[in-house]
Design a protein around this nucleic acid. Structure first.
Length: 533
RNA sequence: GCCUCCCUAGCUCAAUCGGUAGAGCAGCUGACUCUUAAUCAGCGGGUUGAAGGUUCGAGUCCUUCGGGGGGCACCA
């Protein structure tokens, strides 16, 4: 046929693909299309198994009338046992596995011949009555079999599946059919996101979509991806956060908005970071950090409940994550930033002499020295104090030594963050050095920050300016002052609470996956074959 | 970007101190109408990620490159 590979081509193919191509031709010679066609009435395998009728089967086996339910099923061939005039085929679809048998006596002739030409990994359609074998296995006893998709690729080990992590990520389409657990993770992810949408919609939050292509990449402190808008001849950025647009909607009069969508950050890749990741961001007019904490706790607990239901233990919201068990059922812990700092370090974050001494001893200020040196502003061997914001150094100590002391099994809100590291957050009226910001930690991961949003345009403008002051040239190109956002605040934004929930990390926790790549269908991978050879 | 470990047949894995690459499954040929990781008999399959180097001899040691895992840095 026209699409047959040339001889030189065929030599380059692996023997197993050659064999499969030959069988595909034999299927065509039978007058069957190896790639199938529209097929009505296909019953999912789990449903087919459920339709098995014990009485009808017994009646038929006793020589009575054949009232056995008949089904049409389709699936990928995951096991194959050819005993001559009887071929056993184990099918798999997204609902599970089911056995079928194709006998020379009971199947149509072309179907039987096609069964003999079937390989592991092929997709086939079978039709026939449901019966139980002598060993008790519910089986579709085929009256017909039709090919639906010839697989030319040799399948992974039918026993071990696909274990090579690189192949699992690069060829997710194989991983998904060969390792059913993988499909389970992504099905659960989908249901978790649906549940979150249900809850948000039920609370009358309006789901919106805001720009992913932005002329200014604001709303967070991260390096953006830069791209080009040819029509206007300008550079634009993939968003690092939707925050500044969602807040504009509060100005416009929407009182509760949320968005579940992708953010892009041009940073490192590791077990908790992918260049694109999914966030829920929500804003509530006349809310504050505490209403957002309540909302976050509810979203996380209800998501955990969904997973617990799935596990068949709906009343036990303690779920495993690696070696630890996380308790989603009890009220989440709350601890202030200063208390946690003091407990872990043994002195208060306001004791700046001690902070600087410890920071330099413990080496957390080294990177600031390096940065200043790179910019040629380094004080030769001198102290950094006075040149680096105290709050940044406090936070270095906090992240390096305090965060890790949190109990990974108890979801915990850390509250009252320093105002200096929270530029979009409203300072606490009772203590302007602190911000009305909280962060939820679970399993040693930061899952969600929550804020009382800043809505004074003058204070916002001042914070933007302060943030821009110390930037190098490269950073300055994407951290431009967002004039329009300040203009929006001048129009007047109601007081509001806001939050961002990292969906991928939440799914990691709830599906017990230690790598973000295991909860992303297509995690970012270096392109194949880019180098020499 | 840095450190470190890994890459052997289609898949999953072996190969002692540097001694001339094996197994199971898959594939091919044959047998088999209740098997289910089917079984039985036979057969083929490798530039050991790539390129250099050391050595009488390299899957094994060294260098560079590619890809991956883990860690650091950056960040959520």
């Amino acid at each position: 046929m026209s699409e047959q590979p040339t001889p030189t081509n065929i030599e380059s193919l692996h023997e197993q693909e050659v064999a499969r191509r030959a069988k595909r031709e034999q299927v065509r010679a039978l007058g069957l299309d190896p790639y199938g066609s529209r097929t009505p009435g296909i019953v999912p395998l789990r449903e087919a198994r459920a339709r098995y009728d014990e009485k009808a089967d017994a009646e038929h086996q006793a020589g009575g009338a054949d009232n056995r339910p008949r089904v049409t099923v389709a699936g990928r061939v995951v096991l194959l046992r050819d005993t001559g005039k009887l071929v056993w085929i184990n099918l798999r679809d997204e609902t599970g596995d089911l056995q079928a048998a194709v006998s020379r006596k009971d199947c149509d002739e072309r179907g039987f011949e096609a069964a003999k030409l079937t390989d592991l990994g092929d997709v086939v359609v079978l039709e026939g009555p449901l019966m139980r074998t002598r060993t008790g296995e519910v089986t579709v006893w085929a009256s017909s079999l039709r090919p639906a998709a010839k697989s030319l690729a040799p399948p992974p080990s039918k026993h071990e599946g696909l274990t090579d992590t690189e192949l699992r990520y690069r060829q997710r389409y194989v991983d998904l059919w060969a390792n059913p657990e993988t499909k389970g993770v992504f099905a659960l992810r989908s249901r978790i996101v649906s549940r979150i949408r249900e809850i948000m919609d039920g609370l009358e939050f309006l789901e919106v979509e805001t720009p992913m292509l932005q002329a200014l990449a604001g709303g967070a402190a991260a390096r953006p991806f830069r791209t080009r808008l040819n029509a206007l001849g300008i550079d634009v950025f993939l968003r690092i956060a939707p925050e500044l647009y969602l807040k504009r909607l509060l100005v416009g009069g929407f009182s509760r908005v949320y968005e579940i969508n992708r953010n892009f950050r041009n940073e490192g890749l590791d077990r908790q970071h992918n260049p694109e990741f999914t966030m829920l961001e929500a804003y509530e007019a006349f809310g504050d950090v505490t209403t957002m904490m309540d909302l976050t706790e509810r979203l996380v607990r209800e998501s955990a409940r969904l997973v617990a239901d799935e596990r068949g233990t709906p009343d036990d919201l303690r779920l495993p994550f690696g070696e630890t068990v996380i308790d989603y059922g009890s009220p989440f812990e709350r601890v202030t930033y200063a208390d946690l700092f003091g407990r872990a370090l043994g002195f208060a974050p306001t004791d700046l002499d001690r902070v600087w001494r410890e920071a330099e001893q413990r080496g957390v200020t080294a990177k600031y020295a390096r940065h200043l040196a790179e910019e040629g502003r380094a004080p030769a061997g001198g102290t950094l104090r006075g040149r680096v914001d105290d709050a940044l150094v406090v936070n270095e100590l906090f992240e390096a030594f305090a965060e890790r002391t949190l109990d990974p099994g108890r979801p915990t809100f850390v509250t009252d963050y320093p105002a200096a590291i929270s530029p979009l957050t409203r300072p606490k009226p009772s203590n302007p050095a602190l911000a009305d910001r909280a962060d939820l930690f679970i399993g040693h991961m930061e899952i969600a920050p929550m804020y009382t949003e800043l809505n004074d345009p003058d204070v916002q403008a001042e914070k933007f300016r302060a943030q821009l002051a110390g930037l190098d040239e490269e950073e300055a190109t994407f951290r431009t002052f967002d004039e329009d956002f300040v203009r929006a605040l001048k129009v007047g934004m109601p007081p509001a609470g806001g939050m961002g929930l990292g969906i991928d990390r939440l799914v990691m926790l709830l599906t017990d996956q230690r790598s973000i790549r295991d909860v992303l269908l297509f995690p970012f991978m270096r392109p194949e074959g880019s180098g020499p050879g």
